[in-house]
């Protein structure tokens, strides 16, 4: 009960933040009523998906300080579970999604146990390695379509199919992912002030100190890693139904893992709004740069060059991300 209450308790934020967040929430709710551009709609869905990815990453990476660069493997587990179950046995999304979460979490416990014996850089690289191993295995596994991947053919279903999450119009997908987005915010809001949330922040600061306060550092990290995994896997399942075409390279590749981590770090790791801000900046930037520059006159890659420059600037000048800048400005005003 107390946990539920604290999920809805935003009282420790300044009133300005809450008002802005409220306005944005209302905007997100009514956005589809005004916009008829398919491009804007697709971008918004991407933004929401990556916000939720980022929120998940933020639990272990931001609050826990464990730079995880292998989140894509869990996107893959979620996506493949949903796709395989739907294609082979016609099992709807709302059953396959929780099952995907369970599988992803189980896998996260198996590799999390050895993984968290490593620290810092070594940990980060090892997460990449595990993710690539799984991707390679999926690329040769005939049952899941090997390198060709899987395709959900929408013709078989009647639109709109709420059970299987097969829609023709993006607006339905929009509201589904928006629901996950709000649930995600509430969960992380409760998480950051829960016992585990406090323990993680203590671990991020100093592991010896944390263990002197009775915190089982290894176990706390594994638990949080599983929570982050659940977030990512849910969106992975959604991804399968939304994109309808999943390949190992797209759903489990390193690029996706990096993007998830970058999003959260750029916005501000370890803050509630950070991943959302990161996604809000990077996703539209990415799709608009691509639409404007990438498509035109053989300038493939220029969008990502600009993107990379922004990342480099942020990391060198303000390592706490965009939210770090906001807080800095705010504190200066205060004094």
């Amino acid at each position: 009960m107390e946990t539920l209450k604290s999920a809805f308790d935003f009282s420790d934020f300044p009133r300005l933040d809450i008002s802005i967040a409220g306005i944005i929430a209302i905007f997100l709710l009514v956005f589809p009523l005004f916009s008829h551009s398919a491009f804007a709609m697709a971008t918004m869905i991407q933004f929401l998906m990556f916000s939720v990815y980022g929120m998940g990453w933020n639990t272990i990476g931001g609050y826990g300080g464990q730079v995880d660069l292998g989140k894509a493997q869990y996107v893959g587990i979620g996506a493949y579970t949903t796709a395989v179950l739907l294609i082979r046995w016609n099992i709807p999304f709302w059953f396959s999604m929780p099952l995907g979460v369970c599988l992803a979490m189980a896998w996260s416990f198996i590799i999390g146990y050895p993984l968290f014996r490593l620290k810092g850089h070594y940990f980060a690289i090892a997460t990449i390695a595990t993710s690539l191993v799984l991707m390679d295995l999926f690329s040769v596994w005939e049952f899941v379509g090997a390198a060709r991947g899987l395709e959900i053919s929408p013709i078989k279903y009647h639109y709109p199919d709420f059970w299987r999450l097969i829609f023709k119009k993006d607006i339905y997908y929009y509201y589904v992912i928006l629901g996950f987005f709000f649930v995600g915010i509430l969960y992380v809001n409760g998480f950051r002030r829960s016992r585990l949330g406090f323990q993680l922040r203590s671990i991020r600061d100093n592991e010896e100190m944390a263990s002197s306060l009775g915190i089982n550092v290894h176990w706390a990290k594994i638990k949080t890693y599983a929570i982050a995994t659940a977030f990512v896997s849910v969106v992975g399942s959604f991804h399968a139904c939304y994109i309808k075409n999943i390949e190992p390279q797209d759903t489990m590749g390193l690029d996706l893992s990096i993007l998830i981590a970058l999003m959260a770090m750029l916005g501000g790791a370890g803050s509630l709004w950070g991943p959302i801000i990161g996604a809000a900046v990077l996703i539209p930037l990415k799709s608009y740069l691509k639409a404007w520059l990438g498509g035109a006159a053989g300038l493939a890659g220029i969008d990502l060059v600009i993107y990379a420059v922004i990342i480099m600037l942020i990391s060198a000048l303000e390592p706490r991300g965009i939210w770090g800048i906001v807080e800095k400005v705010r504190r200066r005003r205060w004094q």
């Binding site: 980060a124 750029l266 890659g301 990502l304 990379a308 922004i310 480099m312 990391s315 060198a316 390592p319």
Partner: peptide, 30 residues
């Protein structure tokens, strides 16, 4: 670049060399 990067925490260092990676890779693509 790196000189400015190493002043920050490890997270920023990872982020930064990733940025460098993306930069060089896509510059080559371009």
């Amino acid at each position: 670049f790196i000189k400015y990067l190493v002043r920050g925490p490890m997270v920023a260092q990872l982020l930064g060399t990733f940025g460098l990676m993306l930069f060089l890779r896509n510059l080559a693509l371009l």
